[in-house]
Design a protein around this nucleic acid. Sequence first.
DNA 1: TATAGAATTGACGTAAACGTAAAAGGTGCG
DNA 2: CGCACCTTTTACGTTTACGTCAATTCTATA
Lengths: 154, 154
Amino acid sequence: MKLVSPGEAAANTNDIPVEAGEEFVRIGEMAKKYGVTLRTLRFYEDKGLLNPHRDGSTRLYTRRDKARLKLILLGRKVGFSLRDVKQMMDLYDPSGTNTKQLRLALDKSEKQLARLQKQRALIDDAIGELSNSMSVVRQMLVERAAPAQASAAG
Amino acid sequence: MKLVSPGEAAANTNDIPVEAGEEFVRIGEMAKKYGVTLRTLRFYEDKGLLNPHRDGSTRLYTRRDKARLKLILLGRKVGFSLRDVKQMMDLYDPSGTNTKQLRLALDKSEKQLARLQKQRALIDDAIGELSNSMSVVRQMLVERAAPAQASAAG
DNA sequence: TATAGAATTGACGTAAACGTAAAAGGTGCG
DNA sequence: CGCACCTTTTACGTTTACGTCAATTCTATA
C-alpha cells in the first residue's frame, strides 16, 4: 500500500491507499468531517445505509460514501427515519433516470412536510397553553399574600 | 356500600359508593372521560402521579384525582415529561401558599418554553430544507427526459 | 520494545410512555 | 347457572438511534 499524508487537518498516522484519484478516509476522519460519532457510522453501515470499502478490517470511505452520508444527514434533519432514507436510497440506479426513486422521495417528502406542519401546529398550541399557564402562575405568585382563593394543583 | 346510578352516560353495572357528596368513578369511566387508556391510568399511578382510593382492589377516582389527571394531561400537552409533572405536583401542600411549587412550575415552564421555541425553529428549518429539496426533485423529474446531468443520490 | 492512538466486533443499556398479552377474580343479568 | 363485562396484577415488548463499555488488534513513533 502507498503512503500518503492526509493533506488536510488530520494527524493521521496510518496508511491511506490512493488509487486512480480516489480519496479514501478512515472512520475517524469521516466522523470528524461530518460531525458524527464512529458509532453512528458503524450503525448506519449496519443498517445498510453505508457500504465503505475495506482494507482488511479497516473501513475506507470514498466520496460516494460521503455523498450518501450527506443525504442521510439531510434526511435526518428534515425528520425522515433511517428506514425511510434507506428505502429511498435503495432505489438508486446509476444506469437509469431514477424516476421511481425521485417519485418515492417526492411522495415521502410530501407526507413528511405534512407531518412537520402538523408538529409545528402542535408546538404552537403548546406554546400558547404554556404561556397561558405561566401567566396564571405569575398571577398566583403575585397574589400569594392574599387569602387562598386560587385553584392550584392537587 | 350504597348503590347509585352513574347519572351520566355510563352503562355502569357495579357499585359506586357515595359519601358526603364525593363522586367516585372506576377506572373505565375515568379513562373514557379523559380519553386515556386503562393502562395509562395504572401507569400514572405506578409512577406516583395518581393515588385513587380503593374498594378492595378496585380503584376509585375522586375529583381530586380528576384534577390531578387534568394537570398531568396539560403537562404532557405542553411537553413536560411525567417526571417533571411529578416533581411539580409533589410540592403541593394544601396547607400553605405553595410558593415553592409555583416557583418551580414557573422555572420549569420557562425552560420548557425555550425548548418549544427551539423546536419550532428546528421544524421551520426542516420545512425550509425539505421544501427546497422537493423543488429540486420536481425539477429533476421535469428534466428527466434530457441527458443525465443531475446530482442525485448515490 | 514500550506505549499511545486508531481501529475492530460484540453486546448490553438508554430514554418515554405506554401496548399487549396472560391468568384470574368479582358482578349483575337473563 | 353461565355468560358477558369490568377489573386486577405481573411482566415482557415496542420504538429509534445510537451510547457505552469490553476485549482485542494493528500500527507508527519515541
